[in-house]
Simulated assay, not measured.
Amino acid sequence: MDARELPLSREEVDIARLRHVRPRRYGRWAAVAIILLLAGLLVNAFATGRIDWSTTGEYLFWPTVLQGLLNTIWISVACMAIGLVIGVLCAVAHASPNPVLRYAAIGYAWFFRGTPVILQLLIWFNLALVFPRLGIPGIWTGRTVDLITPVVATLLGLGLNQGAYTSEIVRAGMLSVDRGQREASKAIGMSHLMSLRRIILPQAMRVVVPPLGNEFIALIKFTSLASVIGFSDVLRNVQDIYYVNARVIELLMVAAFWYLVLVSLLSVAQAALERRFGRGFNSVVQR
């Protein structure tokens, strides 16, 4: 056989002369068409339904609604701060060699994760039925009904519940750090607490930040449960309005709008934090 009749090798093929054939992704286009159709039907249903959108626009920036929005924001931040402090302390206690601290942290997480949030809110709000007065006998006492207001009950209910979930998230982040680094910190004379503060917890942040961001977003929505005990969040204030004008769906759309705005802003902030804490790790993985 003549050498000129032999098949060309891969290096000898003129790639520029080859025809580029795009893959035909019929399933992808079909899925896009179905999703657009369903979205269009949904939008059309709400647009042509018996909803007075002008009422929704009128109450979108109503002072009472904006006050409820501010209450939702600050109570969420306060409860998350309480949850972070308690969560980190419980995670450290769970990893402690002291069995008393370890089992106390386990019991705390078991109780607050095992009961519904709304039940915890109701228990705190009705605590006066069990303890009519709170304080230190002989020094100072006060009526429980005056001390446990809707705000205090919300802080206790949501903050303590968030602490239980945060403790498990932080503990998972601590377990993700290689055990050799713990041993290395002991070898250079670091104490257990110093090792946690300077070695374990900083590295655990890369694993902890994404689920904590999700927990904060969920907490924003859980604040709506506090409306059942009288806390004036955005949902409670919207309900107070539609009890008067009977525009139920229109006012609920106002609340839905502001929840979507808050969640969208928090999602952007969470993505930025994830990039910040994952910079070094991502560069190592790419190399």
Rank of each mutant, 00 (worst) to 15 (best):
residue 61 F to S: 07
residue 131 F to R: 02
residue 106 I to M: 14
residue 8 L to D: 02
residue 243 Y to V: 02
residue 60 L to I: 12
residue 85 V to C: 13
residue 205 M to K: 07
residue 98 N to A: 14
residue 43 V to K: 13
residue 5 E to L: 14
residue 34 I to R: 09
residue 3 A to C: 05
residue 152 V to G: 05
residue 222 F to I: 05
residue 96 S to N: 06
residue 211 P to N: 00
residue 265 L to A: 09
residue 132 P to L: 00
residue 274 E to C: 13
residue 255 A to D: 07
residue 237 N to E: 13
residue 101 L to M: 06
residue 97 P to T: 15
residue 16 A to M: 07
residue 51 I to Y: 04
residue 229 I to C: 01
residue 71 N to K: 04
residue 15 I to Q: 05
residue 230 G to Y: 06
residue 196 L to C: 09
residue 55 T to E: 14
residue 259 Y to K: 07
residue 55 T to I: 15
residue 189 G to T: 04
residue 256 A to V: 07
residue 118 I to D: 06
residue 88 V to P: 00
residue 179 R to P: 00
residue 2 D to I: 14
residue 241 I to V: 13
residue 37 L to Y: 12
residue 187 A to D: 02
residue 72 T to E: 06
residue 38 L to M: 14
residue 170 V to Y: 04
residue 281 F to Y: 15
residue 251 L to I: 01
residue 112 F to I: 07
residue 156 L to E: 07
residue 65 V to D: 02
residue 236 R to H: 05
residue 69 L to P: 11
residue 139 I to H: 00
residue 236 R to K: 10
residue 143 R to Q: 07
residue 193 L to V: 09
residue 70 L to V: 10
residue 171 R to H: 02
residue 41 L to D: 12
residue 242 Y to C: 09
residue 241 I to G: 03
residue 152 V to A: 11
residue 181 Q to Y: 06
residue 158 L to N: 05
residue 139 I to G: 04
residue 177 V to C: 10
residue 206 R to A: 10
residue 35 I to A: 15
residue 183 E to P: 08
residue 252 L to Y: 15
residue 204 A to C: 00
residue 237 N to T: 09
residue 193 L to M: 13
residue 113 R to N: 12
residue 257 F to M: 07
residue 217 I to G: 03
residue 65 V to G: 05
residue 118 I to A: 11
residue 252 L to E: 13
residue 95 A to E: 14
residue 282 N to W: 08
residue 143 R to F: 01
